[in-house]
Amino acid sequence: MNAIEVTNLHYTYPDGTHGLRGVSLCVPEGACLGMVGPNGAGKSTLLLHLNGILNGHGGVRVFGKPVHEDLQAARQIVGLVFQNPDDQLFMPTVFDDVAFGPLNLGWPEERVREAVTRALESVGLTGHGDRSPHHLSLGEQKRASIATVLVMDCRIVVFDEPTTGLDPRGRWEFIDLIRDLPATKIIATHDLDLVRELCDRVVVMDDGHLVAEGPAADVLADQELLEEHGLAKPLDG
């Protein structure tokens, strides 16, 4: 079954800028899809449609159900990890932040506490619940961001630029963490090494269009395609 099905999606921003000009995309369950393309290609705009934050023309289905039929349900299935932890982590403490989603889903208090403890443990932040997000390192902030979606048992996890700003060690730790996530994954990034490391399929976006799609190894080896869309060719490719 397809985890995500996008058909002919168009989106225009309120100021008239075209975000998406007819994007169609299928992501099978259990896949790890890389999404690459220059800044302004429409990657983030597409991601914001996957759990109904933006609502363009066209269809977005999650496990066969149109997203806008039941937004709350879609938001429990599709977890979004934003690029900047300062956007993702908005509560005064890490615990409050991780508990935010489950509380909105109306879970009872005991279940929330258990789920938060488990999610913090799985990203290696046990005992950091009382800290303010501001006092975490960037690596810790990124891991806390993942915990905020893991806690809801999301079956699809969507990452926007997950490795930006991380030092090499933090980046590798983070890649290991993503690899072990038992979920369908979609990763929008400029980090082609990350794509090579984690993804089985890749789509290339530019100017609101989906311009290429294929197995990661093939797309990353296509020098002409990468150059045309302003993406550096991998050094050893």
């Binding site: 914001l48 759990n51 934050i53 709350q72 938001r75 429990q76 977890g79 979004l80 934003f82 900047n84 300062d86 956007d87 993702q88 908005f90 409050d96 508990a99 935010f100 989603g101 509380l103 909105n104 889903l105 208090e109 929330v112 506490r113 905020t148 979606v149 809801m152």
Partner: peptide, 21 residues
Amino acid sequence: RAERVGQAMVARGYDGRLRLL
């Protein structure tokens, strides 16, 4: 930033009521 924070909150099921334990 506030616009993005609002999106991040809505993405996790926020409907205008802040629930705190």
